Computed example of a mutant assay.
Amino acid sequence: MRQNPSFTLADVTEMRRVIDANPWANIVSAGSDGLVASHYVVLLDETRDDLTVVGHVGRPDDLIHGMGERELLVVFQGPHGYVSPGWYGDVQAVPTWNYTAVHLSGVPEILSDEENLEVLDRLVRRFEERMPDPRLMWERPNDPAFVQRLAAGTVGFRLTPTRLVAKRKLSQNKPAETIEAVISALSEDGPYANRELAAEMRRAQDARTGASR
């Protein structure tokens, strides 16, 4: 991802927020047969306060990616959407796409079987606890043999990035009144209504201006 000083996201706390809120990630590597991409949930390592992440891949994706042997690129995509030039008013303009993204690169560490089970358990809890009747990994009707058998088909990893690029392209290069107009348009009903993107733009704009809401 090409970086642009106007859109650089350098705040680790903000990058962690984007990762935590958007855990469905793209995992990309370059092997002997060319580029390969997989799609998995990847979480922040809760034992760290940096950008270290943990996750798993199913076998044989570990072999396809050369897991633990070569560099991975893990891509997190935040809210994104179309921005119409009509929202800028009566000025020369072209359409664009606003977005937030965090790219983490590095050679991952392979987790032990025990660590992998802990990550899988946390993964299930992260999403299942929102259900009215959660089905957690170690609870009936699952039994330990069933869980162990499924876990054996996965390979857990921890990635502490050695390279990162984070970008928040949210109309920061536009006048304040234009930003407000785009936020308003995204917040209203219409073919490109996108309240999540509007909220992300509001967050970035308030951070720039020091406003609190």
Rank of each mutant, 00 (worst) to 15 (best):
D33K: 15
H56G: 10
V42C: 04
H39A: 11
G68E: 08
H39W: 04
Q77L: 12
P85F: 00
V75F: 00
G81Y: 09
V42E: 03
S38R: 04
D90F: 01
S84I: 13
G81K: 08
L44Q: 09
S32Q: 09
A30S: 09
W97C: 04
V102P: 07
L35T: 08
R59I: 15
G89S: 10
N98W: 03
V75M: 14
W87H: 12
G78F: 01
H103A: 05
T96M: 11
T52Y: 01
T52S: 14
V54A: 12
G78H: 04
T52E: 03
E71N: 03
I64V: 05
D50V: 07
L73C: 15
A30Q: 12
Q77V: 11
G81D: 06
S29L: 02
V94M: 09
E109K: 02
T52I: 01
Q77R: 14
S32I: 12
S112A: 07
W24A: 10
W24Y: 06
P79S: 06
W97K: 11
I110D: 10
G81R: 12
Y40W: 02
D61V: 14
S32G: 14
H39D: 00
D50H: 08
Y99M: 10
I64E: 09
V91H: 07
L43H: 13
G106N: 02
E71S: 05
T96N: 11
T96L: 13
R70I: 15
Y40S: 10
S84P: 07
A101T: 09
V53W: 00
L63N: 04
G58L: 02
Q77P: 04
D45V: 11
A37W: 00
H80T: 14
S29P: 00
V36C: 08
S29A: 10
V75L: 12
G86A: 03
S105L: 11
W97N: 12
T100Q: 14
G86N: 10
V83A: 14
G31Y: 04
V41N: 05
R59F: 08
I110Q: 12
L73M: 13
H56C: 12
G34Q: 05
H80R: 08
T100E: 15
G81M: 03
A37F: 01
R59H: 13
S84Q: 04
L35H: 05
L73T: 15
F76T: 15
P79T: 07
I27F: 08
H56N: 08
T96I: 07
I27S: 13
R59Q: 14
T47G: 02
V107A: 00
E109R: 08
I64G: 01
I64A: 06
D50G: 04
R48T: 12
T47W: 00
N26Q: 08
I27W: 11
V91D: 01
V42T: 05
A30K: 02
Y82H: 06
R70W: 08
Q92I: 10
S38K: 01
R70N: 07
I110S: 05
I27C: 01
A30M: 06
D50Q: 12
Y99D: 03
Y99V: 03
V53Y: 01
D61H: 13
P108S: 07
H80Q: 13
G86E: 03
S112Q: 06
V41M: 09
W24E: 06
I110V: 15
